Simulated scan of single mutants.
Amino acid sequence: MKRFLLLLCSVLAAIGLPACDYFNLQELKPGVSTAMDVRDRFGPPGMEWQNDDGSVTWEYSRQPEGTKCYMITIGPDNVLRSVDQVLNETGFARIQRGMTGNEVRRVLGKPASRQYFELSKETVWNWRIEPPPPSSDTTFFTVHFNSDGRVAKTSRNTEYRGG
């Protein structure tokens, strides 16, 4: 049964459904699991980030429909070091005025959407995030870039359902 569940989760993950992330994360153990274990459960990463210490961080964004982005760090020995879900208050606080788009992507992963506004000469990136309780309305963390491609500010917006 466990093998069937793992196979089902792998198939769902391959077509972009993060429903099995919970089960896959339970199977991964920092200091024990290998890079191959991570790839078997999550597939190829959306982006690979080389770190100064020889490790690599793999990005597994669940955007545009999901609300998670996992940054999974693999040591130079090919052993799992850490799994971090970065779309949270700690990640948002790391976004500072003056950062580039690459620096923001390195912290938060691939955004759900990117839009350019001609009149304001502003580019806006949105990440779908967990809404604050008790709401279930769709909520976004937004990074606003100026015409130089640098962070000007951040904000949040909510798409309220009529009712």
Rank of each mutant, 00 (worst) to 15 (best):
residue 55 S to P: 11
residue 56 V to T: 15
residue 31 G to C: 11
residue 139 T to R: 06
residue 128 R to V: 04
residue 17 L to Q: 00
residue 32 V to H: 12
residue 137 D to R: 03
residue 122 E to I: 04
residue 154 T to G: 05
residue 81 R to K: 15
residue 56 V to Y: 00
residue 32 V to T: 14
residue 121 K to V: 02
residue 136 S to Y: 08
residue 148 D to L: 05
residue 91 G to D: 05
residue 111 P to Q: 08
residue 80 L to C: 04
residue 156 R to P: 00
residue 125 W to D: 12
residue 155 S to F: 02
residue 104 V to S: 06
residue 17 L to M: 10
residue 131 P to K: 10
residue 108 L to F: 07
residue 32 V to L: 12
residue 71 M to A: 12
residue 92 F to D: 09
residue 114 R to V: 15
residue 69 C to R: 02
residue 106 R to N: 12
residue 112 A to Y: 02
residue 28 L to S: 01
residue 9 C to W: 01
residue 118 E to Y: 04
residue 60 Y to P: 03
residue 8 L to C: 04
residue 48 E to V: 15
residue 151 V to H: 04
residue 69 C to P: 05
residue 68 K to C: 10
residue 106 R to K: 15
residue 23 F to I: 00
residue 140 F to M: 11
residue 6 L to C: 07
residue 138 T to L: 14
residue 86 V to Q: 03
residue 138 T to Y: 00
residue 61 S to E: 03
residue 67 T to G: 02
residue 26 Q to Y: 08
residue 12 L to F: 07
residue 44 P to E: 13
residue 102 N to V: 07
residue 159 E to F: 10
residue 20 C to W: 02
residue 62 R to L: 07
residue 52 D to G: 12
residue 54 G to F: 01
residue 146 N to A: 01
residue 61 S to D: 05
residue 11 V to M: 01
residue 78 N to D: 14
residue 61 S to V: 08
residue 103 E to N: 09
residue 158 T to N: 10
residue 100 T to H: 04
residue 142 T to Y: 02
residue 130 E to H: 11
residue 41 R to N: 10
residue 32 V to Q: 14
residue 118 E to S: 14
residue 87 L to G: 01
residue 157 N to C: 07
residue 89 E to D: 15
residue 25 L to F: 11
residue 119 L to R: 12
residue 35 A to Y: 05
residue 147 S to E: 13
residue 21 D to T: 00
residue 45 P to L: 05
residue 45 P to S: 01
residue 63 Q to A: 08
residue 56 V to S: 05
residue 144 H to W: 06
residue 146 N to L: 01
residue 154 T to V: 15
residue 152 A to W: 13
residue 22 Y to M: 11
residue 25 L to M: 13
residue 81 R to Q: 12
residue 63 Q to C: 04
residue 80 L to S: 06
residue 41 R to I: 13
residue 160 Y to A: 11
residue 54 G to W: 01
residue 11 V to G: 06
residue 128 R to W: 02
residue 111 P to Y: 10
residue 109 G to H: 07
residue 35 A to W: 02
residue 116 Y to I: 02
residue 70 Y to S: 01
residue 116 Y to P: 00
residue 146 N to M: 03
residue 24 N to L: 02
residue 64 P to T: 10
residue 82 S to A: 15
residue 77 D to E: 13
residue 154 T to M: 08
residue 43 G to A: 03
residue 18 P to W: 00
residue 153 K to I: 01
residue 34 T to Q: 10
residue 157 N to R: 12
residue 57 T to L: 03
residue 108 L to N: 05
residue 36 M to S: 11
residue 51 N to T: 04
residue 116 Y to Q: 02
residue 37 D to G: 07
residue 64 P to A: 14
residue 68 K to G: 09
